[in-house]
């Protein structure tokens, strides 16, 4: 574990620069935790403006280098104010804050996110470029999440070509016989999404395997429950699929990709657990469903983006 506080410079000018780098980089949370460990942070209710004695605007434009050492020390002793300073520097700051070089780790994360954003934006739209139709059960306050979900809803609301597209998708996922979007009780009992054994095996390549998982996850949108018990059941079933995915072998994947997949699935599972907890605590089922929609949309995007990155990789050999 790297302790950031061990690197704090003695020199005031260097300290200002060090602190600016922490405010703009990915380590501020760790730095603040270390400050809380070192001493009991001063909880005098002082605001950022009070600690900076009216210099806030200047700091937001010119950075911290002009601050007297005592004022820098006062900031460090109130780590919570560092969070507020960070927010304001990032959202309002000019001049020096915009010109500072980006931390390479942040740059890499931004690049990864850009690939995910590209994949999300390039997800297939409706077949005929017709103006988007409103989702059949739109709710004004319900977040309209996911490019993919809008696309599927618009397709279902249009004519036979959209229904045909759904049947083709179902045939691709099932591999054998076509299924209607509304599953028969027998089909439902056999599982859907990642609970189906065929969703976790059969692909020859790493890329194909991840795309297969993404396709299975898209079955989430085939049912739109509207009661709390139904929403809970749907989320629970998808969550169960996460467990199946975590425990599966994923033969086509290299070890690094298997580790990535399991780690991400644990994170997604955690979000679904939080959704269930919220539902059990009385949250609006449609709001919870919308949040779960966001999670599923993101995980589909992540799987597709990872598959894109592996498109030219040969199948992994299991060690």
């Amino acid at each position: 574990m790297k302790l950031h506080l061990l690197d704090i410079p003695d020199d005031a000018e260097a300290l200002a620069e060090w602190l600016e780098d922490r405010l703009l980089g990915p380590d501020l949370g760790e730095v603040i935790a270390e400050f809380f460990a070192i001493y009991d942070a001063e909880e005098d209710g002082a605001t950022l403006d009070q600690v900076l004695h009216g210099r806030t605007s200047r700091v937001l434009e010119q950075g911290l280098h002009d601050l007297p050492p005592a004022m820098l020390g006062a900031l460090l002793r109130r780590p919570k104010l560092l969070l507020e300073l960070q927010r304001r520097a990032l959202s309002e700051g000019g001049g020096v804050w915009r010109r500072r070089p980006i931390d390479p780790r942040v740059h890499e994360a931004a690049n990864r996110g850009r690939r995910l954003l590209d994949a999300w934006l390039e997800a297939p739209t409706e077949l005929n470029d017709a103006p988007r139709m409103a989702p059949p059960r739109s709710r004004p306050d319900r977040p309209n999440t996911g490019f993919w979900r809008q696309t599927l809803t618009a397709s279902l609301a249009s004519a036979a070509c959209a229904v045909l597209a759904v049947f083709v998708l179902e045939m691709f996922l099932a591999g054998d016989e076509p299924r209607a979007v509304s599953q028969s009780p027998a089909a439902a009992a056999a599982g859907w999404g990642w609970m189906q054994d065929e969703s976790l095996s059969g692909a020859d390549t790493a890329s194909g395997h991840l795309l297969q998982l993404a396709g299975a996850a898209e079955e989430w949108f085939h049912r739109r429950p509207d009661t709390a018990p139904a929403v809970g059941r749907r989320i629970g079933e998808f969550r169960q699929g996460c467990t199946q995915l975590i425990l599966a072998e994923h033969d086509p994947l290299a070890e690094a990709d298997r580790a990535w997949l399991r780690e991400r699935c644990r994170a997604w599972a955690g979000e679904l657990d939080a959704n269930l907890s919220a539902l059990e605590s009385g949250a609006d089922p449609q709001a919870v469903l919308a949040e779960a929609d966001e999670t599923v949309t993101r995980l589909i995007g992540a799987l597709r983006a990872r598959a894109d990155g592996l498109a030219d990789s040969p199948p992994a050999h299991k060690s």
Partner: peptide, 12 residues
């Protein structure tokens, strides 16, 4: 804006 937003989120 992604780098700034990522830094903001990393602390929260």
């Amino acid at each position: 804006h992604a780098p700034s937003l990522l830094a903001f989120l990393a602390a929260r």
